[in-house]
Nucleic acid binder design. Structure first.
Lengths: 115, 115
DNA sequence: CCGTATCCCAAGTGATACTG
DNA sequence: CAGTATCACTTGGGATACGG
């Protein structure tokens, strides 16, 4: 994952404490709480996408938020960003191995949320 | 679950749009993003707990945030709140059926976050 | 097409004090 | 014991405009 190792669920308690805010679980949860992350991952789980394609798929997202979301995902190793230096430029995003795992995880959330 | 039905992952896109903010997935994700929710659920997954016990388990939580968290979980049907009208009062929280399901789901998140 | 740069507001959270 | 009531702060996110 993208951060430090973490105890199991029986000793989960201190994870929210000030001195534990950088733990892996917290990073995961914070990410899930971000407004556009899961939808971006879902869209990319269907295959590589260009910036504009993702923008269209995520109805209502602003360019600012989409860029922020994708950059964070890239920083954390969940997506790859490939730039084709044409004019105008062409940028393609795709899931990394970790990103695919994450997508599987969130698919479980999606299903659970339906019933 | 605690809200409206939802399309599957292939048609997930509009879920973040203004007119879809009340969908089940969004509610689930927002809840996961809340700071103390998952830890409270984890603590309760080990058995019923009194207010003070949860407070001690969630190192760093304020009374305000703990109450807010538990009230939201109760409102959404994930935990039960049982008041024993003694003096001083004794209040016990426990997971509902749905809460147990939710705990299982988050356990997956915990494991994934560890590596 | 693919972004950056500002400005601004509302929500989530924390600190602290008080109470039946 | 199990909360409420305020206040103050920080951050995420939206609106808008501009740029290579």
């Amino acid at each position: 994952m993208f951060a430090a190792p973490q105890p199991d669920i029986e000793t989960l308690e201190p994870c929210g404490a000030p001195h534990h805010e950088d733990c892996g679980l917290r990073l995961t949860l914070d990410r899930l709480g971000e407004k556009w992350t899961v939808m971006a991952i879902a869209e990319l789980s269907a295959g590589p996408r260009r910036y504009r394609e993702i923008e269209r798929a995520l109805a209502g997202v602003t360019q600012r938020m989409l860029t922020l979301t994708l950059r964070r995902l890239e920083r954390d190793g969940l997506v790859h960003r490939h730039v084709e230096p044409t004019n105008p430029p062409s940028v393609t995003y795709s899931l990394s191995r970790t990103g695919v795992d994450f997508a599987r995880l969130t698919a479980g959330l999606v299903n659970w949320s339906r019933q």
